[in-house]
Each structure stands twice: as structure tokens, then as C-alpha cells.
């Protein structure tokens, strides 16, 4: 229990640091710290595959992407004004959501547990079986999404190159 709260504190520190930090580079690094905390949490919930994906993609790849983008658009920090006082109602909404959800959500999930049942003869299915047989359509969607992203990025940069010529 204490370990979980400590991991959550690491995540909260990373997230709040990423939000309030003025420098974009610091924001990206704090986001990586939050990602590492989330991957530890996933390991704690005995979800090693998701934890490894989170650690390698979110804490690794996305941080590298953010840092390279920040280095390409340098000297752009603190140029935009922020209206922070206007949104001070956020904590009130948040506390209302917390109180209401802590009352209603557990009952809802108990009701939901009968629908999302992927057990077979009393044993839970392996993650490979779930990915390839039950949610096989997701794999096709992932491939299409990756292809779409690659084509979008290729088109964006080829257009810039043509314009520079």
C-alpha cells in the first residue's frame, strides 16, 4: 500500500512538474519521469507487457521525439501568455468528480465484471491469445494507423523540402 502511494507520488510530481515547468525541455524530462512511475505501477499490477511497452515507447521514444522537437524549435519558451486565474475552478470540479466517482464507480465495475469475461474453463486467457484471437482486428488497425502516421510525416516533410527549394 505504501509502495503504491510512493509510486503515485512520483507520477504526480512528474505530471505537475511537466505542467508547471516553463522550459519545454524540463517538461519533456518530467513527463519521462511520470512514464517511468507508470511503468513501475504497471509492474506492480502484474502487467509486465504493458509496463515494458510503457517504458520503452513512452519513457524512451516519445521523450526522444519531444526533446528533438524542442531542440528544433528553440527560443520559443515563455512567448505565450497563460491565463491561469480564469481556470481556478478546476480543483473544485476535480474534487466533485473524485467524490462522486469514489461512490458510484466501484459498484459500476462490479456490474461490469460479468460482461468482460475472457476466461476459458476457469483460467484466464494468455495475453497472446487475447491479442491475436479475441482482439485480432486491433492488430490490423494498428498496422493501418502506423502506415497512416508514416505517410503523414513523409508528406509533411517532403512538402517543406519542396518549398525550401
Amino acid at each position: 500500500m505504501i509502495l503504491y502511494v510512493l509510486i503515485y507520488l512520483v507520477i504526480i510530481v512528474g505530471v505537475v512538474g511537466a505542467v508547471i515547468s516553463k522550459k519545454l525541455l524540463n517538461s519533456a524530462i518530467m513527463l519521462a519521469i511520470a512514464s517511468i512511475g507508470i511503468s513501475l505501477l504497471l509492474f506492480g499490477y502484474s502487467a509486465p507487457w504493458a509496463a515494458v511497452f510503457e517504458l520503452s515507447v513512452c519513457a524512451g521514444l516519445i521523450t526522444v521525439l519531444f526533446i528533438s522537437a524542442v531542440s528544433l524549435v528553440k527560443n520559443e519558451e515563455d512567448t505565450t501568455k497563460e491565463k491561469q486565474i480564469k481556470y481556478s475552478i478546476f480543483p473544485l470540479i476535480m474534487s466533485a468528480v473524485v467524490i462522486l466517482s469514489s461512490i458510484f464507480i466501484p459498484e459500476y465495475f462490479e456490474k461490469l465484471s460479468s460482461y468482460a469475461n475472457t476466461t476459458q474453463n476457469g483460467n484466464e486467457l494468455k495475453i497472446g491469445d487475447i491479442i491475436w484471437s479475441i482482439r485480432g482486428i486491433d492488430v490490423i488497425a494498428q498496422i493501418m494507423l502506423l502506415a497512416g502516421g508514416v505517410f503523414a510525416i513523409k508528406h509533411i516533410f517532403s512538402y517543406v523540402k519542396k518549398q525550401e527549394e
Binding site: 468482460a116 475472457t118 484466464e124 487475447i130 491479442i131 486491433d138
Partner: peptide
């Protein structure tokens, strides 16, 4: 909570990939 951790893992893997593509674009 619903003791169905592998289904949650598979959904999270898909979500992380979507996230990476959106951020890269």
C-alpha cells in the same frame, strides 16, 4: 478490479501505439 488483467494489457498496448503515432505526427 475485475481480475481481467490480460485484456487490460492488450488494450493498453494498442493505446500506447496510438499515442506514439499521434505524438509523432
Amino acid at each position: 478490479l475485475i481480475s481481467n488483467i490480460n485484456l487490460a494489457q492488450s488494450i493498453i498496448i494498442v493505446m500506447i501505439l496510438v499515442e506514439a503515432v499521434v505524438i509523432a505526427t
